[in-house]
Design a protein around this nucleic acid. Structure first.
Lengths: 214, 214
DNA sequence: TCATACTTTAAACTTATTTTAACAAAAAAA
DNA sequence: TTTTTTTGTTAAAATAAGTTTAAAGTATGA
């Protein structure tokens, strides 16, 4: 909250990516890394990486590069890795199930604490260690959950979102095609699988030369 | 291929989104729409929408707005909706299955023609009308497929990608955390679920006021 | 140990891209 | 008519990326 407001959104979006790769390097036992090496790994221009890092002050050493452990520690703090954010998943279909199997907690500051569905066959069960509750229980259970992953059918999206917001959720990762409306102060990120695929196809046809953007 | 090179990438990325909503409006029987209305629906500033549209010439009428059907027809052409792109899906796990159930063809120019997996229980079967083949058959079957959705475990990502590229694939939608390397001319879009979630959380904490960006 | 060559960052500067704001002109509505 | 709506476009502002340069370090070999 101090000066984070000043760092560009584009940089902020790359942070989790950097963190992931730094973690890999650390596991591999690497002690230092140059912006060039990191660039090869994450496919981001090395100058951009240095620029991104420099928003946080001088983290590297000239002629040496970055100390992996130090950088990792720094990112852990910056990304609030110590304080886990409690997440709920709504809609245990295939996509929802994929999420539940994903081991987020391992390298991340997020934990899916519970899931909701309306299918009686799923309610009461658990997947990947996450209990599945009846969607009707949502308001009762959602205490202390601050983010939600929305993997329900489109038709349910806005209705469920309203209930989530009422329950105090401040962030929604929306996988439905619906562009949901939320009150100010609630953050929504959209990922629309069909749009992503269509976008890829459009870029393939019209921008065939570039290596990679996104 | 005429002047598409001139339209900004940021605009290109929004095109599929516009198309989807225009289609919704059309189904709802709406005859016209203003940039303001569309803005509310897709959560993109109305000025940005007008600016985006204007790259393609004058599509609307002052004091009236845009004719939904005309605009839709225009986008259909621009997004090459008439010519379907043949897509293969690699890795029929939960995420892959979610994709197969998704009815892409309905509103889109993409069709998942086939899927690959190495699980003998899945091979030979089909999901959502898409046949599942043995991953060993990849090179033999991939004729005429130009894009691939990669939903395999990270460890397989680069190896499979190399095989896809050899088979003539020009675009990959990569859902694995690996930042895969491809030769020039092949397009890769990454979607990393963990990064997306972490990114949401970061933005929730540090940019709590903005309504929506992405 | 010292000199030299090499590496690599950080910061300043430049360029490019994207968004936003403003407003005249055209059409619609009253 | 007159007023209101709404586009298309221009110009300005904001964001983001890439380049260059100087300083600070490392590594090497005499």
């Amino acid at each position: 909250m101090t000066d984070q407001n000043k760092i560009p959104q584009a940089t902020a979006k790359r942070l989790p990516l950097y963190y992931r790769f730094l973690n890999n390097l650390h596991i591999q036992g690497k002690l230092r890394v140059s912006s060039k090496e990191l660039s090869d790994a994450v496919k981001v221009d090395s100058a951009t990486i240095r620029r991104d890092f420099s928003y946080f002050g001088a983290l590297g050493k000239k002629g040496y590069g970055y100390n992996v452990e130090y950088l990792l520690g720094f990112f852990r703090k910056t990304l609030d890795q110590d304080e886990t954010t409690r997440v709920a998943l709504i809609g245990v279909g295939n996509l929802g199930t994929a999420f539940l199997h994903y081991n987020f907690t391992k390298n991340n500051n997020t934990k899916i604490e519970m899931a909701f569905d309306k299918d009686p066959n799923k309610i009461g069960g658990e997947i990947g260690g996450v209990p599945i509750y009846d969607i009707d229980e949502l308001e009762r259970k959602m205490d202390r959950i601050s983010a939600a992953i929305l993997t329900v059918p489109v038709s349910e999206a806005q209705g469920i979102t309203d209930r989530l917001v009422t329950s105090g959720v401040k962030g929604v990762l929306n996988f439905t095609p619906a562009r949901i409306t939320v009150p100010e102060g609630v953050r929504v990120h959209h990922i629309d699988l069909a749009v992503e695929l269509q976008s890829l196809v459009y870029f393939m046809k019209h921008y065939p030369l570039d290596i990679d953007d996104e």
